[in-house]
Every structure is written in structure tokens, then in C-alpha cells.
Simulated scan of single mutants.
Amino acid sequence: MKKIHKFGMTAACTAIAAGALWLCFGEKIKILHTSLRSFKDENLAYTFQHTPEIQPTKKISRGNDPFQFLKEENVSLADGFRFKGGFYPTEGFLEDTKTSALLVVKDDVIKYEKYFYGGDPQTLFSSNSMGKSFVSALMGIAVAEGAVESIEDPIGMYVPEFAGTDLESIPIRACLQMASGIDFNEDTDMSRFSMRTLMGTPSMKVIADHGVQEEPYTHRRYQSINTEILGQIIKNATGRSLAEYMEEKLWKRIGAEQDAYWTLSNGTELAMGGLSVSLRDYARFARLYLNGGSFHGEQILTKEWVRDSMDVSAAYSRPGANQDVYNAIGYGYQWWVPEGDRGEFMAIGVYGQWMYADPSRQIIIVKTSADPDFMSQDYELKHVDFFRAIAGGLL
């Protein structure tokens, strides 16, 4: 009887503890479970087209006067492209990379637009890390308006959690260029970071615990936490949430056609990549940079910010920096810059999300995907040649 009583007491205590845990973290555990299920390979296409229905988000309202691209019947795209001695047919490449939508715009005219997996022009597609480029734009606006004094300022000037830590003196510019020197590994540390923040630890506190591994500007290391820091700086400096700031300063000013949504993590916007945006609105955002930061004569981003955002002249920013396969493409202020002299720039998100622009040809290409093989060898470089083949075929 004593053993039975002891077992019963243990079970009761376990049940009470589990109940208390559920009361404290139940909603967060549900979100975690939903996220894990959503990112199974077979669910990716649905997830990336329905994120605002799956995750908590904050709405970013469009303005009242959307800019309209002209629209033509779909042109014939290039048959394919060559890469490292091989030929990749366009249709096969689109299928193999699990393309969910493809949009090609030249001189403000939609030349090609096609949706897969049930999408359409009203579908909002997950940005994943393409969202980093939007955060960069918001930083540019915050600097231009004086909320942030300078990107040479130390991040500890705007983030109290960094005061007295090794991170305190890192310049904002170093975070923009993924050269902060923070001791964080994107592959091995991200899961723990996500779990701790989901369970309530402030993201800046989690980042501060990592310390630094080298002086800023020593190497370029892709770390999404750099963008989280930029997002926090914008919020602290402006006194606005990222969604609110983006709605007023960017979304209502570039002629966006649809509302966008920003995914929330522990109640705050996921700066590293949580936007849901329509394909054409991604193109409208890229168009802002294509036009030197101007929209209908209004300078939303300074010309200098747009120019500097694509500057990859520093050794750590250049294509092939560190002889690292992850750095095969150059990196500016949260924008990727391919090797070459055409002035091309790109935003890239995991699982195959792309914004590509070629100012010399006035071409914008947006490609969204649900590709679990996005980490395969030469994946990004193949896409660069694919986009160049499409752009070249429209001349």
C-alpha cells in the first residue's frame, strides 16, 4: 500500500507540475508544435502561403493608392541556362526547386507571372530571410530621419541589454554587413536561440550571453541574430514596433497593393525573417531600390543608403570572402550582391525565396519556393545564372 500510495503521490505531483507548465507555457508549446509540423517537407508549400493563419502575426496595412504594373501575356522564358558545363532546362529547374510562384517584371511591365501549389496574385508568401532586406530599409529610414544617429554608433547605445558586455561597442554597420564578430553559429545555435526566446527570455538577453569571437569586420559570418539586433535598435530608437514603423514609413509609401503581415515571436516581430507579402509587392519593394530609393518623386530611401547597401568592396563583403561556400555571393547591408559589373542585387530566404534585380536591364524577378533541398551544393549560384538567363532572354 505504501508503494502504491507513493506512486500515486508521485503521479499526482507530476500531473500538477505538468499542469502548471501548461498554464505557464501551454500556448507557447502549442505554437512550437505547430511550427515543427508546419516545417515538415510535405507541408512547406502550404505553410509558406498561409503563415498568417498558422502563426501569430501583426498586420501592416497598405495605402490607398497602389502602384500598378502593366501586364502582358506571359512571354516565353529562356529555354534554360548553363552552369559549370551542364545545361538546366527552365521547366525542369522550376519543378526541381519546388517553385511556388515566379514573377518577371521589365520596365514596370509584368512579362511573366505563374503560380503553383494553389497560389495566385493575392497569396501572401513567406519571406523567410528576404525579410532582412526590409529591416535594412527601415534602418536606412531611421538614420535619415535622425532616430538613429549613425550606423557607426555602437549597438550598446541603443540596446540596454548589451551595456557592460563584450557586444556593447560593436558598430551597427557591422551587424548590417554580417561582420559583427558575435560568437554565434547559425547552424548549431539557432535552435537553442529560438527555444529560449519562445519560452520568454528576451532575445537581446539571449544574444548578449553569446559574447564575441573576434573583432568586428574581421570576417563575414551569416548570423540572423545580427538582424534581430537591427530590429531592436529600430524599435528602441523610434519607439515604434517594426510593423507600425514599416506601415507608416515604407508600406503606405511604395504603392503596395495588399496588406502584409509580420510574424511574432514571443509577442514581438521576428526581424530575421517573418514577413508575408504578395509576389507583386515583393517586386514593388525591389523596384524602390531599382529606382534609387525614390517612388513617384519622393525620396523614401536616400540615394546614398541604396548605393551603400550594395557596396561589397570590403574584403569581408566580397563574393568568395573567407573562402567560405556560404559567402560565394557578396553581401552589403542585408542584401546579396553577385559577382559582376551589372549592379545586380538579391534578397534570399531559406527554402528558396528570391528577389533579384538588374538595374542595367530594369528587370525584377521574384521566385518563391518550398524546396527542402535549398542547402544543396551551388544552389544559390545556380539561381544567379538562372535569373541572368531569364533577364538576358528579355532583351
Rank of each mutant, 00 (worst) to 15 (best):
M1L: 04
K2T: 12
G8I: 11
A11V: 12
A17H: 00
L21P: 05
L23P: 00
C24S: 05
I31A: 11
R37I: 09
S38L: 03
F39E: 09
K40Y: 02
E42P: 00
N43R: 10
L44M: 09
H50L: 14
K59Y: 11
Q68S: 14
L70K: 10
N74A: 13
S76H: 05
F87D: 11
T99P: 08
T99W: 08
L102R: 10
V104W: 02
V109Q: 05
Y115R: 10
Y117S: 09
G119V: 10
T123Q: 09
T123E: 09
L124I: 04
L124S: 06
F125D: 05
S127P: 03
N128V: 04
K132D: 04
S136R: 08
M139S: 10
M157W: 10
I170N: 10
P171T: 07
P171F: 09
I182G: 01
I182A: 00
N185A: 12
M190N: 05
M190I: 07
R192T: 06
S194D: 12
S194H: 08
G200C: 07
S203Q: 07
I207T: 00
V212W: 06
Q213T: 01
R221E: 11
R221N: 08
Y222G: 06
Q223N: 14
E228S: 08
A237R: 07
T238E: 06
E248C: 02
K249Y: 14
R253M: 07
A256I: 08
T268I: 08
L279M: 12
Y282R: 02
A283E: 02
L288P: 01
Y289P: 02
Y289M: 01
S294K: 10
S294Q: 12
T302I: 06
T302W: 09
M310H: 14
S313W: 01
Y316T: 05
P319Y: 13
N322V: 05
Q323V: 03
Q323M: 14
Q334E: 15
W335S: 07
W335I: 06
W335H: 09
E339A: 04
G340C: 01
V350P: 00
Y351F: 09
S360Q: 05
Q362Y: 01
Q362A: 03
Q362L: 04
I363S: 04
I365V: 15
V366K: 04
K367A: 06
D371T: 00
S376A: 15
Q377D: 14
K382R: 13
F386K: 12
F387A: 03
A391K: 07
G392V: 15
G392E: 15
G392M: 10
G393I: 09
